[in-house]
């Protein structure tokens, strides 16, 4: 998102007019805060979180890594068979499976489309919310919150019902609108229309999070800034690009990283809507692959190897994203 000089010109006074008094601190760097440097206090504050996360997340993740080098299935866990060290055999089995690489590529692409669509829909509707009065705003907000609250397994089932070629109302409506090609059209048969159907559901259940968060963020932007821009005759798009988006950066970063993680790990939607990966596994994504290849048949060691690979891929994506942010002067 290169903003150009115009944006920086706008951004500077906007920042200055915010609640922080005194000389502006250079972005991100917490210089001149001597008192809080080198004390134990932050660690004291962090202690409860570190105990919980250390015990309940770091330890299982350490085990995950360990198990990925062993032969460890239910037969080892409870069947009395010896747990043996396998070196990289589990990884070799995984990388040797031709399907694995196709699944990785499909997952990355599908997740990217999901993230971009969710963010686009969420942000657009958040801006829309600022443009309407209370009643339509409440209606949209409540509908979105309902979509968010529905259990994923139910949401996916309902969407399949709606798009069912024999029993669903969507095709009937499309035909009624004159699109006769949708007569008995099966959305899940073609690879791309199946992915599209899942995409609709994913966006449906995850845009509310983005919309509500971004809407709240916009409301926190000082009114004068937006009014000044509106008086200058700037378009909605321009106001978004040059004022809102930069100010919402901290929120957008969290929202984006979370969306990347969630969408890369999409499971329920694919599993329910395409019956476990689609016709001849055409809609397979990594988490479903991991489930079928390993977890459903209790092959924990192979599953752990897949988990480690997924962790590394996601970590790489996140680090690249944060590096890009840093290059634009944004600091964590």
């Amino acid at each position: 998102m290169s903003a150009g000089t115009a944006q920086h010109a706008r951004r500077a006074p906007a920042k200055g007019s915010r609640s922080r008094p005194g000389p502006a601190v250079p972005a991100g760097r917490r210089s001149g805060k001597g008192p809080r440097r080198g004390t134990w206090t932050p660690w004291l504050y962090l202690a409860p979180a570190l105990v919980v996360l250390g015990g309940l997340l770091v330890y299982p993740i350490y085990q995950l890594g360990l198990i990925s080098f062993l032969e460890y299935t239910q037969a080892q866990v409870s069947g009395g068979e010896p747990t043996t060290f396998q070196g990289f055999a589990n990884y070799a089995e995984l990388f040797g499976d031709g399907e694995f690489w196709n699944v990785v590529v499909a997952t990355l692409l599908f997740a990217a489309v999901c993230v971009v669509s969710t963010l686009a829909v969420g942000c657009a509707l958040a801006v829309l919310l600022t443009r309407v009065r209370a009643v339509p705003r409440l209606a949209l907000m409540l509908a979105a919150l309902g979509a968010w609250a529905t259990p994923a397994i139910t949401g996916s089932t309902v969407w399949v019902f709606l798009f069912d070629p024999d029993f669903g109302p969507v095709n009937k409506v499309l035909v009624w609108l004159g699109l006769s090609g949708f007569e008995n059209y099966s959305w899940t048969y073609d690879r791309y229309s199946a992915f599209a159907l899942v995409l609709f559901e994913v966006v449906w259940c995850s845009f509310p999070f983005v919309m509500v968060t971004v809407y709240a963020g916009i409301r926190a932007i000082p009114t004068e800034v937006l009014e000044a821009a509106a008086l200058d005759g700037a378009s909605t798009w321009r106001i978004w690009r040059t004022i809102m988006a930069p100010m919402l950066r901290p929120i957008l970063v969290v929202v984006t990283i979370q969306s990347i993680i969630w969408d890369f790990k999409v499971f329920t939607q694919i599993y329910v809507m395409t019956d476990g990966g689609g016709i001849a596994r055409q809609n397979m994504v990594l988490n479903v692959y991991a489930y079928q290849k390993a977890f459903a048949s209790s092959q924990y060691s192979l599953g752990s190897a897949i988990g480690v690979v997924m962790l590394l891929i996601l970590l790489a994506v996140t680090l690249v994203y944060l590096r890009l942010l840093r290059r634009q002067g944004e600091e964590l």
Partner: peptide
Amino acid sequence: LIMFLVAQMVPIEALTIPMFFL
């Protein structure tokens, strides 16, 4: 901060067995 995110990146089924014994 980045470590905090790491746990969310792993498929949760993979963590269930170690957590079970924990």
